[in-house]
Amino acid sequence: MSQGEAAALDHEYTTTGQPSRKMLMWAFIGSECMFFGTLITTYLVYHGHNVQGPYPKDLLSVPFISVTTFVLLMSSLMMVLALSAVQRGQKKWTRVYLFLTPFLGMIFLGGQVIEFTHFAHSGLSLSRNLFGSTFFVLTGFHGAHVTVGVIWLLTLWVQSLRGKLGPEHSLTVEIAGLYWHFVDVVWVVLFTVIYLMQGVHT
């Protein structure tokens, strides 16, 4: 629909008073919680079940991943600022923050690429052992979610450059933000489960 229409529809009467597409995102996040919850459980269940190396402690680097984690968390901050800029109609800041958010997301993804490559060179693969299988699938799915978010946010950024993202579209940005924050929160859990809790088993 044209952006103006989108804005008009957002203010229409709904039973709960909430816009439907915002509720859709919340319900979708509920489903995603189950999805990542199941993957994380699988990771935990298989933790320490390796019959051959490399083991988590041989490869995982907490300092490195702490940096990229910090970057991702900062991107959430940028997202908050982007939304507030859109709501206030600050065109320049909208463009700045809407660029910084996916940009930091891309740095995070770059970190993941470096990490994956390093692991691959050290002999870890999907088929090498259970650590490889669970690690790559879990972090890979998270990375895919970040990628989708990056594309989405870049699209919004382009819209803002074209001058098509005024305050009447703040809901669109808010929903993208919901998704983005969710993906970040998932990473915080993964960071804890994979990197901080690795010590217990071999």
Partner: peptide, 14 residues
């Protein structure tokens, strides 16, 4: 497809 070990008992899968 990729030879992962999730359901492979010999590799410690369950």
């Amino acid at each position: 497809f990729f030879g992962a070990d999730f359901y492979r008992v010999a590799a410690g899968g369950d």
